[in-house]
Amino acid sequence: MRKGKIVINEDRCKGCFICISQCKVKEIEKSNKVNKYGQVVVEFKNLGKCNACTLCAISCPDAAIEVYEIIEEKV
């Protein structure tokens, strides 16, 4: 299974939590942080279950999520 990670742009996140409802592996959760506009933002849990499916990023209204695929190099 491919591995991935997401990076959340906290200045763009408005805390609608649609990404949490879309994530199939429950890798995103509500954080305790507040951004400069006073919105509660989400955070990436990084449990190693993310498979870079991009569902969270596609459904994010504010384009606040970047998705990376992690490619392990063969030795």
Binding site: T54, D62, I70, I71
Partner: peptide, 29 residues
């Protein structure tokens, strides 16, 4: 380990944050 970006904010959007409420469909469109 290499990281390959597969989804990012489109270049045709500026860095100005949307003025819409959280979760608004306008932002998605």
């Amino acid at each position: 380990m290499k990281e390959k970006i597969i989804y990012k904010k489109p270049d045709s959007l500026t860095d100005i944050n949307f003025s819409y409420c959280p979760g608004c469909g306008h932002s998605t469109v």
